[in-house]
Write a protein that binds this DNA or RNA. Structure first.
Length: 424
RNA sequence: AGAGGGAUGGCUGAGUGGUCGAAAGCGGCGGUCUUGAAAACCGUUGUGGGGCAACCCACCGGGGGUUCGAAUCCCUCUCCCUCUGCCA
């Protein structure tokens, strides 16, 4: 959520930013919001005045009663009656205005960083870095959904049977590979200074609002109605919400956390040929890194996180590219996002395995996540997160790119974790 | 799941109808002392909103009510603790 004070002070900048995102009717929406805010402040002032008078009268009545002047106390009581009606009316009005303001603010996405390229869709994204040569496979090379059958490592049919589409069952060396990836990614993140967190996989409504999945994307999350809980779509939600309603000390920053969790996504209505196999799932496993940093250092933190993700992909021996998302393709809450895509050679497609974003104060506003600056004033912090990494597409690329007639060769870094160097 | 007890500022913890935004201690910050530090002593120290400011308003888990006046009384919800039951 954007801060109303920011919109008030930087109206033109906000409108320009929203236009870059191709957010419809930006100028009109902002002017509506500012009008509500204006009335809100006016109402607040009136209410404060009525309450001040009411407080003064109450104090007076107390003193009069103590002094035994009951007659005068009754006169004062009579005066409070009308004031109380006014106060009630004004506070109802204020509550309604505040609710309307918040509701409107929830619908406005984050302002993109100035370096975010113009553009409407993924085609306008900017490739900023590419590493590794694209493998050329034999003509009899198989896509990963065939390879997993050939080596009996992932079973989509069994998943269909016990749960439904998009819930694969990992078996044999496939299950061991999952376990190896978890330990590899967590060990690497720990070496890079991230503190390991194992959060719950279900979160309450307040957490959903905190990181911005609610209210707009509630249809994307699985919901347990009986308990009012949501299955997490990413570890970002529980881990970032750990710091909700906190005022951190500057010396505790940056916060660097890493967590492994299952991720659940309903992704209704987006199924087709291009999302076969592991390309898109309802449940997948992911290691997520989260940083919380002061505003002046958050973009350094973003670069550091990107460097970290790069190092993982290089060690996994996968060709990849780093893409800066354009205004139209960025997520609702992000100010700047880099996607990392690996090349899956049999499909001949780039698959997103990581998305690293700086949310600036957009999440911190809802989270009430702040620190004390050198003047002892509270300031909002910046939140960042990134996948490091999401498992299924890494597995898909490993299988497709490293397939040989003898089986699938694993990258060296994984062998100590799997205990085998080939899937056959 | 049943019975009982709780929820107060960064933390611990007093406060059962009025000058209480809230004692005290700890912690933090500033100072005195010291070569420096510690100790001791003095001062200071919640968050948010409105206002150029003086200042005003709101907030004692959430919501509602009683009252001229609520941290304090009533209702309700949530969460936590203890005992009993069940259970990985």
């Amino acid at each position: 959520m954007l801060q109303i004070s920011f919109l008030r002070q930087h109206t033109e900048k906000a409108i320009a930013g929203l236009n870059k995102r191709h957010f419809p009717n930006a100028a009109q929406v902002i002017s509506e919001v500012l009008a509500i805010d204006d009335e809100r402040r006016h109402t607040q002032a009136e209410l404060d005045k009525a309450n001040a008078r009411l407080n003064a009268l109450s104090k007076e009545i107390g003193i009069l009663i103590k002094a035994g002047k009951h007659q005068e106390a009754e006169t004062a009581k009579a005066e409070t009656l009308e004031l109380k009606t006014t106060s009630k009316h004004l506070s109802d009005k204020l509550a309604a205005l505040e609710e309307e303001l918040t509701r409107k603010l929830y619908t406005i996405p984050n302002i993109p960083h100035e370096s975010v390229p113009d553009g409407r869709s993924a085609q306008d994204n900017e490739v900023v870095f590419q590493h590794g040569s694209l493998p050329t496979l034999d003509s009899n090379a198989l896509p990963h959904w065939d390879l997993v059958k050939k080596y009996d490592i992932i079973d989509f049919e069994l998943g269909n049977k016990i749960t439904g589409a998009g819930f694969p069952v990992y078996k044999n060396k496939g299950a061991k590979l999952q376990r190896a990836l978890m330990n590899f990614f967590l060990d690497r993140a720990t070496q890079a200074g991230y503190v390991e967190i194992q959060p719950p996989s279900l979160v309450n409504e307040a957490s959903g609002y905190g990181t911005g999945q609610l209210p707009d994307k509630d249809g994307q999350m699985y919901y347990i109605a009986a308990d009012g809980l949501y299955l997490i779509p990413t570890a970002e939600v529980p881990i970032t919400n750990l710091y909700r309603d906190m005022i951190l000390r500057k010396e505790d920053l940056p916060i660097k956390n890493v967590g492994f969790t299952p991720c659940f996504r309903r992704e209704a209505g987006s199924w087709g040929a291009h999302v076969r196999g592991l390309n898109r799932l309802h449940q997948f496993e992911k290691v997520e890194i989260v940083q919380i940093q002061t505003p002046d250092k958050s973009y350094e933190a973003l670069q550091e996180m990107c460097q970290y993700v790069k190092s993982l992909l290089i060690d996994l021996e996968l060709p990849f590219r780093m893409v800066k998302l354009c205004g139209g393709d960025m997520g609702f809450t992000a100010a700047l996002t880099y996607d990392f895509e690996v090349y899956a050679a049999a499909q001949q497609r780039w698959l997103e395995v990581s998305s690293v974003s700086n949310f600036e104060t957009f999440q911190a506003t809802r989270l009430k996540l702040r620190y004390r600056d050198e003047n002892n004033k509270t300031q909002l912090l910046h939140t960042l997160n990134g996948s490091a990494l999401a498992f299924p597409r890494v597995v898909a690329a490993l299988l497709e790119n490293h397939q040989t007639s003898q089986g699938i060769r694993l990258p060296k870094v994984l062998v100590p974790y799997t205990g085998f160097d080939v899937i056959d």
